[in-house]
Simulated assay, not measured.
Amino acid sequence: MARVGLAAVFLIAGGLKVTDLAASGRAVNAYQLMPYETAKVVGAALPFLEITLGLLLLAGLAVRLTASIAAVVLVIFMGGIAWAWAQGLQIDCGCFSKGGELTGGRTTQYGLDILRDVGFLALAGILLVKPRDRFSVDNLLMGDA
């Protein structure tokens, strides 16, 4: 369940952003952590990384490696959110949306965003300890889970 749950998280997050790579770049730029040109490239690449992680997890292929990469990505996401919070930025994290400046009286939810990502990080941790299950490609290639 941890593998499928984390796969769904990355597939949904990447799928929501992949149709508008420019908006994804603007969302990364809203964090004010890097030059705009770099943020555009990172924003354009991020949905493809998320979808790739999601597909690998869903298939159960190279689960320990994929969970490790997912954990690093989640820690980076949490660091970015913490940075935005510490800097007093009023942005949507862009995790499951186009992100950017908050408008229309919306308020930040940085604490909840970080807690959510801690939960996702726990799923990655479970997969680091027990990467194979009977429904994974890894199990078919390497034997019983």
Rank of each mutant, 00 (worst) to 15 (best):
M1T: 09
R3Q: 12
V4E: 08
V4C: 01
G5Q: 04
A7N: 05
A8W: 13
A8C: 10
V9F: 15
F10W: 14
L11H: 07
I12T: 09
G14N: 03
G14K: 00
G14Q: 01
G15V: 06
G15Q: 09
L16C: 04
L16A: 05
V18L: 09
T19D: 14
D20I: 00
A23L: 09
S24L: 07
S24R: 00
G25V: 07
R26Q: 13
V28W: 01
A30F: 09
A30R: 04
Y31K: 02
Y31D: 00
Q32T: 08
L33T: 11
M34I: 12
M34C: 09
M34P: 05
P35C: 08
Y36H: 13
T38M: 14
A39V: 08
K40I: 14
A44N: 05
A44Y: 04
A44L: 08
A45D: 12
L46D: 06
L46P: 05
P47I: 03
P47K: 00
F48S: 10
L49Y: 08
L49M: 10
L49Q: 03
E50S: 02
L53R: 01
G54K: 00
L55R: 00
L55Q: 01
L55F: 11
L56E: 07
A59E: 05
A59T: 08
A59Y: 06
G60N: 04
L61S: 07
L61V: 04
A62G: 12
R64K: 15
L65G: 06
T66G: 05
A67F: 11
S68T: 15
I69E: 07
I69N: 06
A70C: 03
A71S: 15
V72I: 15
V73M: 13
V73A: 14
L74H: 11
V75N: 06
V75R: 10
I76W: 11
I76R: 04
F77E: 00
F77I: 05
G79H: 13
G79E: 03
A84L: 07
W85Y: 14
A86K: 15
A86C: 10
A86M: 15
A86R: 15
G88Q: 11
G88A: 13
G88K: 14
D92T: 09
G94N: 04
G94E: 01
C95H: 03
F96D: 02
S97K: 09
G99P: 02
G99A: 02
G100A: 03
G100Y: 10
E101C: 08
E101Y: 14
L102P: 08
T103N: 13
T103Q: 15
T103R: 15
R106E: 14
R106P: 03
T107K: 13
Q109W: 02
Q109Y: 06
Q109A: 13
L112C: 01
L112G: 12
D113M: 09
I114R: 12
L115G: 12
G119V: 01
F120P: 00
L121T: 10
A122L: 08
A124I: 03
G125S: 11
L127R: 06
L127Y: 06
L127P: 05
P131G: 07
R134Y: 04
S136I: 06
N139T: 08
L140H: 02
L140Y: 00
L140A: 03
M142C: 01
M142E: 14
G143Q: 04
D144V: 02
